[in-house]
Design a protein around this nucleic acid. Structure first.
Length: 571
RNA sequence: GGGCCCGUAGCUCAAUGGUUAGAGCCGGCCGCUCAUAACGGUCUGGUUACAGGUUCGAGUCCUGUCGGGCCUACCA
């Protein structure tokens, strides 16, 4: 038995997440957590909302509520949506909660103690009408290079030139549109990342289990050379900057940068879990206090990779304290929606709450994992969704369960039949199963979700192939024992197929296992060489055939959804 | 601008430089009748974006062209 600490990138508080966010971080992390638990390992799956930063303040202002009240409300919405998708977090915390303030301040102070911090004065654009400093992206103006009038402070979308907001001609606030803006001096703390450059590179060199995408992004940053990085901002909402436990002089109106405190929330959320009665958090995070045998797995979208392979490790290593670093990192590309990206700000695509109104979570979970954006961006289309669900879940798996349980109910009195001896058909099924189970297990261990789904599907298909040749309905006419073997094998197949389906489609799997009366203790991940799975259900055991597991998605429903969500055209 | 990735069947995707480039879906045909008109078998489908090059051998490596995407540290 091993120990797995699993975190998925924490979703930003600003609005409910779309299916692309779900598919690229929380859902695969959940599938992996469920798999590792079924294997009997000790798992801690941690997530949280990322609540600080300018967008949260602006969204609250737009909603006309206090930022804390806004976050309280959004937190509940996101928490409920995650629960609706059956994400099995051990804890779903909040980066605005006290443990994160305390830990972020701790890291800030300990980094300074080790010479990793320098205070500098920089020029930032201040908007007098908005009464706030503006992040580069929130300043708009005319590009000094090409004359484009809506260039952003960080980059011109027209000519791609990287800009400093000070350079913009006729700068204005993107928030209010006000041109009443001016550069002002403001002091900030800079993290001296170059001091950790060599140690980070050595660590990345050793991290051979990361996928190519993650390593190439890390190397790119390292090759260009790490730079001193500002880790504070002029904002009201966030973690206060301290020195010796008190507000740092001159930083009364500043907070830590959201990207400094957000990854620390992985640890802080574990502290929240601990405070809620979960257990000893240090055992998971401190290598001097029991975490040396923990395998730490991080799951995220590709936009997060640099922060997890470079920035956060600089914080950790720079502290010179024995914190756990990531061991295995899984990065995803994007899910696309009819050619474009899913977009929270533009409301493009399907969002988590809407999805749950339309169909049960298992449908989405299966599709998003069977088509996970692992090697490149993956297209989501309603038509593909319909085909995948109807074929894989309704026809292949759902109908398999239905056909054998109903046959057993009508011809064998809803019992697991006794009698008969397994023969060549059963041996062929068992052999193929053993081979595919080994492959499926390996796919899960390596977090190859597409391949895992394909392998699971192939196992289900093998069940249908078996029934076709064993044909207990034919055997029944001449040889009741032969039919009994077919039905018994088929029912046991239902059980083991559902056991293997648990990480992907937990609800449907539970329905099947409950209907067959499989005790919780017998739902663990089987070993490929375990022949006992084909005679695991007690003979003579009564069961109730479950209702149809998956209703097919009809063409009319696809048409309705296409209208509602703008599928096939511009959203 | 710089860097990285991708382009394979109608669709979605696979293939440590090594037999005849494979799956699923869709479509055609055959079979089965337990089942959600489900299941099984089988067939059709390819100039691997394009043009060169390296190699005994290239989807894979190199160069260029075209098309798409991502990153570029103050959105997160």
């Amino acid at each position: 038995m091993a120990r797995y600490l699993i975190t998925s990138a924490i979703p930003y508080i600003n609005g409910i997440k779309h299916l692309g966010n779900l598919a690229g971080s929380m859902l695969p992390a959940d599938v992996h957590a469920r798999f590792r638990r079924l294997q009997g390992h000790e798992v801690l799956y941690i997530c949280a909302t990322d609540e600080h930063g300018t967008p949260a303040e602006l969204a609250a202002a737009e909603a006309g509520v206090d930022v804390r009240a806004y976050c309280d409300e959004q937190y509940k919405i996101q928490r409920d949506a995650c629960a609706g998708f059956k994400l099995s977090f051990d804890h779903f915390g909040r980066s605005s909660n006290p443990p994160n303030h305390k830990l972020t301040q701790h890291f800030g102070e300990v980094l300074e103690k080790h010479g990793m911090i320098e205070e500098r004065v920089t020029k930032q654009i201040y908007s007098i009408d908005d009464k706030r400093f503006l992040p580069d992206r929130y300043v708009e103006g005319t590009c000094p290079n090409c004359g484009f009038e809506r260039a952003r402070g960080d980059q011109c979308d027209n000519c791609q030139t990287l800009l400093d907001p000070i350079e913009l001609i006729n700068p204005r606030s993107k928030i209010s549109g006000s041109t009443n803006v001016e550069p002002r001096d403001t002091a900030h703390l800079f993290l001296k990342q170059p001091l950790m450059q060599d140690r980070i590179r050595e660590w990345v060199d050793k991290s051979t289990e990361w996928p190519p995408l993650a390593r190439s992004i890390a190397y790119k940053w390292l090759d260009e050379g790490l730079i001193d990085r500002s880790i504070t901002r002029d904002l009201a909402w966030g973690v206060k900057v301290t020195k010796d436990g008190k507000i740092r002089a001159g930083f009364e109106n500043k907070v830590y940068y959201v990207w400094f405190d957000a990854p620390i929330e992985y640890i802080a959320s574990t502290v929240e879990w601990s405070e809620a009665g979960g257990g000893d958090w240090e055992r998971w995070w401190r290598t001097d206090k029991g975490a040396e045998d923990v395998t730490y797995v991080q799951v995220m979208g590709k936009d997060n990779v640099a922060f997890h392979t470079v920035s956060f490790p600089v914080t950790i290593m720079g502290s010179q304290e024995p914190w756990k670093l990531v061991d295995r990192l899984k990065a995803f590309n994007w899910v696309t929606w009819y050619g474009g990206k899913f977009s929270t700000s533009e409301k493009r695509g399907i969002f988590m709450d809407q999805a749950l109104e339309i169909l049960p979570s298992d449908y989405w979970r299966w599709y998003l994992m069977a088509n996970a954006p692992e090697s490149s961006d993956a297209a989501f289309t309603l038509e593909q969704f319909q085909q995948t669900i109807n074929a894989d879940l309704a026809n292949v798996f759902g109908n398999f369960v239905n056909r054998i349980t109903r046959f057993a109910a009508s011809k064998f009195d809803s019992e697991v039949p006794n009698g008969g001896t397994p023969g060549a058909h059963e041996e062929k099924l068992a052999n193929e199963f053993a081979e595919r189970l080994a492959a499926l297990t390996q796919c899960h261990e390596q977090m190859e979700f597409r391949k895992a789904a394909a392998e699971l599907r192939a196992i289900w298909v093998a069940g249908n192939e078996y029934l076709q040749v064993a044909a207990p309905w034919t055997a029944l006419k001449t040889d009741r024992d032969a039919a009994a073997v077919g039905v018994r094998t088929g029912l046991n197949a239902c059980a083991v197929f559902a056991i293997l389906a648990q990480p992907f489609i937990p609800d449907a799997a539970k329905i099947v296992l409950d209907a067959l009366g499989v005790p919780e203790a017998n739902r663990n991940w089987p070993k490929p060489d375990d022949k006992g799975v084909w005679d695991a259900l007690p003979r003579g055991h009564k069961f109730t055939p479950p209702d149809v597991l998956f209703k097919k998605i009809e063409d009319e429903q696809v048409a309705e959804l296409a209208v509602r969500f703008g599928g096939g055209g511009a959203a």
